[in-house]
Each structure stands twice: as C-alpha cells, then as structure tokens.
Design a binder for these strands. Structure first.
Length: 663
RNA sequence: GCCCGAAUAGCUCAGUUGGCCAGAGCGCUGCUCUUGUAAAGCAGAUGUCGUCGGUUCGAAUCCGACUUCGGGCCCCA
C-alpha cells in the first residue's frame, strides 16, 4: 500500500497511509491533539477535519486555543443557536450567523412576526446545551445552486444568499459567512453551495468549516437580543438577532465576563454621575448634556491645553455663530449630502436658517473675506466650535454619541506644494497632543471615496488621496485603507487610540478637501501674480470634546491625573481644633493655584477619607496636632501609601511636579 | 426611525397574584460625639411612583400613547 507525505508547520514531513484525513493525522501525532483538533489548515485554507489529505500538502491542525480555533467555535456555536431557535419556534426561518469579535450572532425571522424577549434566552440556552450534549456531528455536503434552492425553499433569506452566490455577485460582508473566497469566485457555472447537517431535521447552509461535533462547544453565554435589519438595510425587514459570546474553555469565558464587568465599572455615564461631572436631564431633551462644576473644570483644562498647543502650533483663533443661512449650506453642499445629519430648518424673516452641523463653511467665509496672498499660507483657522447634528433617537449614547458637541476644529488653507508637508506635520502634532493624555497606541486608517455619496472630480479625489497616503508613508506608520468611508467632500485619515483596557476609540481625523475651496471660489495670489485655489484640510484632534472627555473618563476609570483632576487635594483636619491650621494650608495651596477642597471635622476622619477616596481625589491631606506643631501634612495619595509629617512646601513641590509632568 | 427592555426620594434600589397612610440604604437637616487614614450614634424632612389617557369599587402594579434612558440595527466625532 502506498503512503503519502504531508508537511507540518515546523517543516517536518510525516507519512500517512493513502486516504488519511486530517483527523487521522492529528490522532497519529498524539492522542491529545486528536481529541483537541477542530479543523485543519491545508495549504493555507481552512477545512473540515474529515478532509482527505493529498501527498505534499502543508497541513496545520487548528486547536481551540488559537485565533482560528476560537473563530470556528464561535461559528459552530452560532449554528447550534440556530438549531435551537428553529426547534423552539416552529415555522421560523434564519438568515445569517457569523462569528464576531468575542462571540457570534444569528439573525432570525420568527413565525408571524414574533419577537424575542430577554427571558427567551434561558430557554434557548437550555436547548443549545442539549444539542451540545448529544455530540451531533457537522456533516458537510455540496449542492449545485438549483438543488440548494430546492433544499432551502422554505427559507427566504438563505434562498437570497444562494441566488447571490450563484450569480457570482460579490458577496457583501454580511454574507461573508456564505461566500468567503473559493466558493463564489468562479462565477455562476461553477457555484457550489455547501451545507452542514447536524440531524435529519437541521441543516444549515454554510461555507464552513465547523468543529467535528457539537461536543467541542459549550463555553458560551447568550448575551442579548436585538433587532437588526436584513443586510443592514433600513428598507428591508427587521430580523431578530441574538448575540452570544463563546470561548475555548471555562476560564476564558469567565475572564471575558470579568472584562465586561470592568468595562461596565468604567462606563462614563456611571462615573460622570458618581463623580458629579455632568448629566443628561431628560427635561433638556435627548442627546444633550449639561456640565456640572467639576466636569466643566476638567473640560476647561482640556480646552486650555488645546488652545495653548494650537497657539504654539501656528494656528489663529476664530469664532463663528451657531446658526447659518441655508444658502451657505447650499453652497457648501451640506444640504445635498448631509441634510440627514442636520437639525430641521428654522424659517425666519429673510430666509431659512440651520444650526450648523460643521464649522467649515463659515471658516471658508473668513478665508474669502480678504485678498489672500501665498505669503499667508498655510493659514490655519482654529475654533472650539459647537455644532449640532441630528442623530436618530436610537443611536444616542452618553457622551459618545450626542446631538450637540464642540469640536477642536481647524481648517488649514495651503498650496498644493505645501500639502504633503502640512499633513505630515499634522500627524506629528496629533500624536503629540494625544500622548499628553497618556495614549500611546495609535492606529491609522485611510478612508477613500464613496462614489455614490461624494462631490468633485476623480482627478481631485485622486490627488487628495495620494497626498494623504504619501504623508502616512513618510510619517512611517502602518495604516489600513477603508474603501468608501470618506466624507462627502474628501478622503481622510482617522486616528484610533487604544485605552487602558485595550479598547479602540476613533478620535482624530484629518481630511483633505479640494471641493469646498472650489464651491466657495477661494483663491490666493501666488508668487507669480496668478490666482490659485488653496487646498483645504479639515482636522480635529479630540474630535469632539464631549466624546474625548468620555473616552478619557473611561480610560482613567475616573482617576484623572493631577493636572486634569477637578480637585487635586482634599484637606481634612483631624478634629475641629485643627481647623485654623487646615484653613492656613488651604489658603496657601489655593494661592499657589492648586485646586483644593477642605472638609470640616463634623464627621469621623475615616468617613471623610472614604468620601474623598470615592471621589478619586489625587491627594488627601490629613492635618492633626503633630502637623499644627511642625507645619506638616499627612499625605494620602490615590493608589499609594500614607506619608506622615510631610512639610507643606515639599508637598507643594511634589504636586507642582505631578501637574507639570501630567502624571 | 426600527426591534427588545427600563423609568419608584438627590443617588442605588425593594415593592409578591391590583387592596391600610409607598419602603430600605446612602445622601440631606438637626442634636450628640471631637475624631490620625475607606462608613460614629440618635432624631427628622423628602415622592403628583416619568407624563397623559383608559380599564376597575380601587392602579406604582393591568392596557394605550408620548417622553427619556439602556442594549442593538443604520450612521458617525
């Protein structure tokens, strides 16, 4: 009998009897591996474990504790979810159920338009565990489109996907589950639709691969129910979605749930309430925040810092109103391309007015006001500009998505020759400002044109896109290209930061714009006396002050560093006898510009310390009899050890150093 | 906007199948305690149970609409 040989990841060769499967290979290597193996990676393609190997193939065994393994577990768990739901809700149909970050979801249309309720999750969970306990195999089969349609004739959404795959139409991301690479690539004639059958009653259409049997699953939790439009399109039916999380083992699942708890503890809405920073009074209306004294204090420091950096960065400050005539937004193109995001118009005596959704058109009016010379370029106009955007009621989310917010906004007018250098120095500027807020980990994204939602010629877009690309290359950072994600007026670079618990937030944006200068007929006199059109850059570093504040609040978990903290030190006299000395300390700190608070000895010291700790004050200063005599303090730093008998001057030096270093 | 859920004192939350005067802890006010590093004691005040309408002898509780919030879809800073 003839053998075949396959190549393992470490480069070694292993021979096997002909017609061996990946499962055979795994078992042959070790019993343990045979038990753990989920799928195989053959010449770079994921495939089921029962795939027969061919001589010379490179084979890797995928186990649960790997990126691909988790992906497979989540994907297969989604199938189990579908099986459970279809059993529990007879007459229902299913759409798609892909793995996602940390888990999976599956979309259903229940019979008679029924909807899921939170308490249904327990019932579904129990059914899923039955299926898992039964160790049902995932058996793959392949059908031609016609036969596939026949098999799925009761399932509208599956049929739609089959037709899409069969027609060779490029699969959308939503359908990626169905048509990753291979299957649809060869077009209509070759299209093959694959299925996975678990029982006589349950078969799902899927590219696969899947775990060998449901017994490999089980470390999952159903998280929430939600509505989701079919293929994300508001004009299509709303399906019922169930989200779940799934992991390789119990420990991973538990750790993930702990991470979720941690994120919940840091929720900026919760912390903003506990620390009395801001609120969203319902009387005020949805998506509108009011800043309490402590929140406003932090915000002011952020704004002051931003102003200082911009002043040093060669920006000139401007101020523009919150309302503008509709004519302005006709000129800018906002009414054509951004009307959905704008508040409704106000009719007034001489025309229609809108709350401004962006500052750029008004900045263009400032540029246009005088005759500009090339000597003035780059002209950098900066404004902490408050804008109003109409966000759908269901999308509002604390400070992260809000209807009225202030941008640290600037529009830079420069010549074509200056463009690349300007963008590059902007990248440096952005990163340097964000680093002051302790962000260290950045991701850069380049968003390109969406032809359906944009203004301007191809040439102009190409030029702008190339300028951004060149700047990124020169700046020397990796970046991802996001096709079609650009604003309607030009391509952009978005900068994401990673926070203290590893979550990614999009903050800064740099957008090139050749269109507004054209629409506003902006020009400057060049060195040779000719008139030229400037190029415009839109950029914001914080993005929105509100959103940035929310991100910072979560990033620090409310523990704002001393330079940002609304109260830097709370002074606590041990007893009322020490009040006079405490007052003296308070006056001295205050006179030196520190933000301090004093709580009189009406409550026990322990209680007052507890309160100050809960307010996350950087330093608690306890002063008692010893301190009165020696002119010292007991210093209790946030997250540190108590230090007694510290001379007041030493403490002031230390606090000043903290603030200076932004620690 | 659409799907699911929620709304009770300043805050966090209890309030069983509709039934005396709606509760607790924290906070607040007053008195007592005079405190050395994460909750002293006693007393007191505080609510149109989100709003409006309906069912009922009777509604915080059941039904409807609206408002706001939370989780999603879409979009985006």
């Amino acid at each position: 009998m003839s053998d075949i040989a396959v190549i393992l990841p470490d480069g070694s060769e292993r021979s096997l009897p002909e017609a061996s499967t990946i499962a055979d290979l795994a078992t042959g290597i070790s019993r343990r591996l045979g038990k753990d193996a989920l799928i195989g990676l053959v010449d770079g393609s994921e495939t089921d474990l029962d795939t027969v190997l061919v001589d010379g193939q490179q084979v890797e065994i995928v186990v649960p504790d790997s990126e691909r393994g988790l992906h497979t577990i989540r994907h297969s768990t989604a199938h189990v979810l579908a099986q459970a739901v279809l059993e529990l809700w007879p007459g229902s149909t299913f759409a798609i159920g892909p793995p996602i970050e940390d888990g999976f979801y599956y979309d259903f249309a229940l019979a008679d338009g029924a909807t899921f309720h939170e308490d249904d999750l327990d019932k579904i969970d129990a059914k899923m565990r039955e299926i898992i306990k039964a160790r049902q195999p995932f058996v793959r089969s392949e059908l031609a489109p016609a036969a596939a349609l026949e098999l799925m004739s009761d399932h509208l959404y599956k049929s739609e996907i089959i037709q899409m795959v069969a027609s060779g139409e490029k699969a959308s991301e939503l359908a990626s589950e169905m048509a990753e690479d291979g299957d649809s690539a060869d077009g209509a004639a070759e299209a093959v639709i694959s299925f996975y059958r678990n029982t006589d009653d349950f078969v799902d259409m899927c590219v696969g691969p899947h775990v060998p049997h449901t017994g490999h699953l089980g470390h999952f939790k159903l998280m929430k129910v939600a509505g989701a439009y079919w293929r994300g399109d508001v004009d299509r039916p709303m399906l019922q979605r169930i989200y779940g999380t799934a992991w390789a083992d119990k420990k991973q699942l538990a750790a993930h749930l702990v991470r979720l708890e941690e994120a919940e503890k840091r929720d900026h809405r919760k912390l903003a309430n506990e620390l009395d920073l801001l609120s969203f009074p319902s009387e005020l209306g949805g998506g509108l925040a009011v800043w309490h004294p402590k929140g406003a204090a932090i915000r002011k420091i952020m704004e002051d810092y931003s102003r200082e950096r911009h002043l040093n960065g060669g920006y000139e400050f401007v101020v523009t109103p919150n309302l503008a005539s509709g004519k302005l937004f006709e000129t800018s193109g906002h009414l054509d391309f951004y009307a959905d995001g704008m508040y409704p118009p106000m009719e007034m005596d001489n025309g229609t007015y809108y709350p401004k959704p962006m500052n750029c058109p008004i900045h263009c009016l400032i540029f246009r006001r005088g005759q500009r010379s090339y000597r003035e370029l780059p002209l950098r106009l900066f404004e902490l500009g408050t804008v109003y955007r109409y966000e759908r009621a269901g999308t509002l989310h604390g400070l992260m998505r809000i209807r009225g917010f202030t941008q640290d906004d600037s529009h830079i007018y420069c010549s074509e020759e200056q463009l690349a250098e300007e963008i590059e120095s902007l990248l440096e500027f952005v990163v340097s400002v964000l680093k002051a807020f302790t962000f260290e980990d950045f991701t850069f994204n380049l968003s390109t044109r969406d032809p359906k939602k944009s203004v301007g010629s191809d040439e102009v877009w190409d030029l702008a896109t190339k300028a951004l690309k060149d700047a990124l290359d020169k700046f020397g950072v990796p970046y991802e290209v996001k096709e079609g994600d650009a604003a309607f007026y030009g391509p952009k670079i978005d900068i994401d930061v990673r926070d203290a618990i590893g979550r990614s937030w999009q903050l800064s944006t740099i957008q090139a714009d050749f269109n507004l200068p054209e629409r506003f007929e902006l020009e400057y006199v060049a060195a040779d006396g000719s008139r030229k059109q400037p190029i415009m850059l839109h950029r914001a570093l914080f993005g929105s002050i509100e959103r940035f504040f929310g991100v910072l609040l979560e990033h620090f978990a409310g523990n704002f560093p001393a330079w940002l903290a609304p109260i830097q030190a709370t002074i606590l006299p041990v007893a009322q006898d020490h009040q006079a000395y405490a007052d003296e300390v308070y006056a001295k700190l205050k006179a030196s510009g520190f933000r301090v608070d004093l709580v009189e000895a009406n409550d026990p010291l322990g209680k007052r310390i507890r309160n100050a700790k809960q307010q996350k004050v950087p330093y608690i200063l306890v002063v008692g009899a010893d301190d009165v005599a020696a002119g010292t303090l007991g210093v209790n730093p946030r997250g540190g050890e108590v230090d007694r008998d510290v001379p007041l001057d030493d403490f002031m030096t230390k606090l000043a150093a903290d603030i200076e270093s932004k620690a």
